[in-house]
Design a binder for these strands. Structure first.
Lengths: 224, 224
DNA sequence: AAAAACGAGTGTATAATCAACACTTGCTAC
DNA sequence: GTAGCAAGTGTTGATTATACACTCGTTTTT
């Protein structure tokens, strides 16, 4: 196969920007690295792509290694391929963002990796080009969220409208009017009242809603 | 550097989705391959990433090899990393789209590569996963075009409003109302009349306009 | 047991934006 | 001089977006 063997080969990695929704803020799951390179600094969770594994699969594997979660919504952010982006060796990395429900992950696993949550606007500096990855992931995630109902991956299956509103406010980075917001939800067929009441966040209790994937697929309508 | 050397290495390629605007249609510059693998079939222009070259630089180099053009607007579409995406060897490819003014490229170079233009909706089947690359590039390009003034890269510096309208129609895939369109242009400070008249497309002649990058940077306003 | 605290829930009026629509102009070619 | 052709030009009605303040139901406090 001399056509191929004439060309160089590269280390290929994946890095995961793991978003969660915590204390009404978009948050990020980061590693405090207790290993080289860049031991002691903060980074995204990453790993090398294996021989017989697609790049997408590598990202899913790495996410599972850290959180224990499978079947998670992920999107590719892009390939990062500058020559000196890692100091010691050339590594090309493909970044992915993941949206997880912060109630669901495996806490022991996360602790054993020395990982921790930070609010997105309080994140520390990260190693290599991970800051750039996070910025691009945020832009891409916000863009997707304004067109497709991906935000529900950040919430439990059932949620109150107040929680959904504060999530939208966190994603779009601006306050929203409560009455206008609820008017829009009322016109969105794929968000339906479940009947139960949540009393954990208020004395009066708030109706619980859920996102109905099937209704969305039929109507294709979603705009919050 | 045993941390790194324990991990496999991969061939890394780039592929270019080269868009142009021809006969009022978005078009694509493709290769009729006179070389292996997949000789005789149609593909995107691509190439392998070199040792001391960033992935972005590889894409720019490959574009220049085919068209002779430099300083071209390009955006990364994403990394394509399925295990069997090329039949003979594993290659991970990063796709980029480029927007070029179809009057500008080096015709001899293009012919020597056996390359040709096709309208986007008349494109033949392409090898490997290049069809998927083109579809994703189109989605991304359309999304960008609806937010940022990238469409001007597809036009000569000076253009008539009729050309600009037919370009928008081609990008968004729908007819636009002439009066509404021109009203919007009139409210877009970064599109300015140049004074000259183009008589090549109509007997009466049409005013020429140009996009003013500086005005756009100041106002940040663009919406067509 | 009354009152205070707290988030849940609810409509209307105005402003802004979008969408639909048809004729006249200026030049050229016959 | 007239037929042909793309360029150019405003108004109206419909839809959508925005601004805004009080009552409800439950719990906690005094």
């Amino acid at each position: 196969m001399s056509y191929y063997s004439a060309h160089p080969r590269f280390h290929l990695a994946v890095d995961c920007i793991i978003f969660g929704f915590r204390d009404d803020k978009i948050s990020l799951l980061l590693l405090k690295r207790d290993f080289e390179p860049a031991k002691g600094e903060c980074s995204l969770m990453g790993g090398f792509v294996r021989e017989n594994e697609s790049v997408d699969d590598a990202a899913r594997r790495v996410l599972t290694e850290l959180t224990g979660l499978t079947d998670i919504y992920m999107e590719q952010v892009g390939a990062f391929g500058k020559v000196g982006r890692e100091p010691d060796e050339r590594v090309v990395s493909v970044a992915y963002y993941a949206l997880i429900n912060i109630d669901d992950y495996d806490h022991e696993l996360v602790e054993s990796h020395n990982a921790f949550w930070v609010a997105i606007d309080e994140r520390p500096d990260l190693i290599f080009d991970h800051d750039e990855m996070v910025s691009k992931a945020l832009v891409k995630m916000r863009g997707m969220a304004s067109e497709y109902p991906i935000m529900f991956h950040l919430l439990p299956k059932e949620f109150t409208l107040s929680k959904l509103q504060s999530l939208c406010e966190a994603i779009y980075g601006m306050p929203l009017d409560k009455r206008n917001f609820r008017k829009q939800v009322a016109h969105t067929a794929c968000i339906e009242k479940v009947g139960a009441i949540d009393k954990s966040e208020s004395k009066r209790g708030a109706a619980l809603y859920r996102f109905n994937e099937n209704v969305f697929r039929k109507t294709g309508i979603f705009k919050l």
